[in-house]
Amino acid sequence: MKKMIQVLIILLTTIFAQYGLSAEVLSNDKALTGNKEIKAYFDVNIGEPDKLFIRLKMIETTYSQFLASGISPHFIIGIRGKASNYFTKDNDYVLDVDIPVKKKIASMVNQFKAKGFRMEQCSLAAGMQEISVADFLPLVEVVSNGYASMIVYQSQGYAFVPMD
């Protein structure tokens, strides 16, 4: 896989050079050197559906980039605040106009779970949003206190990544 990415970069650089375009190759090689695995906790709490979806796509891209670099990522997504409304089974907690994005988010939850992500919904946030614990997607684990999870995961070496 790494070899294929290198070949693709060389190919694109050649094409850009041929047409007078510059292709600066960016990397995180210095930061990645010596790492075989990483652990990250993403604090997802944004209640704007389009921004929420973009943040989830960023998490997915980060995961893929780690894999492409030969690093085994272990990701936990902590869900709090108004983001909670988009991780429910039914559409009762979002506006009708937001349902298409909510469906995309549900699809991402399935993809994340298939990749081994852990997804935790804070029950305190659920209560603040007046969402019943039974209403969350089955692949999302509801925990009693998302703040407690956040603290414990950091003490276990997980990098804390705020997502708004």
Rank of each mutant, 00 (worst) to 15 (best):
K3D: 05
M4F: 15
L8W: 12
I10W: 12
I10P: 05
L12A: 10
L12M: 12
A17Q: 15
Y19M: 11
E24L: 03
E24V: 11
N28S: 10
D29P: 03
L32A: 07
T33C: 02
N35P: 03
I38S: 10
I38V: 14
Y41Q: 03
Y41W: 06
V44K: 02
G47L: 00
E48N: 09
P49V: 03
P49D: 04
I54W: 11
E60C: 06
T61P: 00
T61S: 11
T62Y: 03
Y63L: 08
Q65C: 14
F66K: 06
F66R: 09
L67M: 14
A68N: 14
I71G: 02
S72A: 14
I76A: 07
I79M: 06
K82G: 02
S84T: 09
N85S: 08
F87D: 06
D92M: 08
V94I: 09
L95M: 15
D96M: 07
D98L: 04
D98C: 06
I99V: 15
I99R: 14
K103E: 09
K104L: 12
S107E: 11
N110L: 13
Q111D: 15
Q111K: 15
F112V: 13
K115A: 14
S123K: 07
A125H: 00
G127A: 03
G127W: 05
M128T: 10
Q129N: 07
A134N: 10
D135V: 03
D135F: 09
F136S: 00
L137V: 09
L139P: 05
L139F: 04
L139Q: 13
V142F: 03
A148G: 00
V152L: 07
V152T: 00
Y153M: 04
G157P: 02
F160H: 03
V161G: 01
P162K: 00
D164H: 00
